[in-house]
Computed example of a mutant assay.
Amino acid sequence: MAQVLSRVARIPTISRFGWLMGLYAENFTLLTRLFEPADLAAGSYLSSIGDGLDLRLELVAQHAYTTELRMTYALRDPVTGEADPSAFLRLYRDARQVEATHCYLGRRWQDVIGMYPPPAAVLDHRMRMNTFLGKWLHYLGERGHGVATLQRIGTLSAA
């Protein structure tokens, strides 16, 4: 008796880790297009477009293949005094990726996922942070922030 083989169309899938790497690559493109951080010297920069919501970009360090920076508004959380929202970013020029390593959106990561989270919780948290970063970068571009609005306001202190 002949076997009947059915054709099953397989839709390619992507793992959560693969999705995260895709977010990193997309964020690299967005951040590079907006501010060209590889061309900036370490220090503080302000992007003002006249809407009263100035963006602060702090370039912490330039290394051979990476750039470390912090992006925030000139707003403070009334409870903690921290800049809110803010994102600490690491740009990998050789891999063409930007990773949001820490975000502060009213709560610290320890309050969100605990001190010793399981690996799946860490991956989920990284996906949320980097999705937020991508949306924020899109928003900044739509509002008109970019290299043309960026002005250096000083060097970072050694603190």
Rank of each mutant, 00 (worst) to 15 (best):
T149E: 10
D51T: 11
F35W: 05
A25T: 13
A41D: 13
N130E: 11
F17C: 10
V98K: 06
M71V: 08
A87H: 00
N130L: 10
A158N: 09
G52E: 03
Y73W: 15
R70H: 06
L89T: 00
M129V: 11
Y65W: 09
M1S: 14
R126F: 06
Y45R: 09
T149S: 14
D84E: 10
F28C: 04
Q97S: 13
E26K: 12
L30M: 03
S47F: 00
L34W: 01
G106A: 07
S86Y: 00
T131H: 10
L75N: 15
L91F: 02
E82M: 07
A95P: 02
K135H: 11
P85E: 00
Q97A: 15
T155D: 15
H102W: 10
D77I: 08
F35H: 02
N130Y: 09
P85A: 00
A148E: 13
L55P: 00
D51L: 03
E68P: 01
I153E: 10
V60K: 05
L69S: 12
T131C: 07
F17V: 15
L20A: 03
L105K: 01
H63F: 08
L133H: 00
G154I: 04
E26G: 06
A100M: 12
A148I: 15
L46Y: 02
A64H: 15
R90Q: 08
T13Y: 10
G144D: 07
I49S: 07
A41I: 10
R76A: 12
G114E: 10
L5P: 10
Y65G: 13
Y139N: 07
R96L: 06
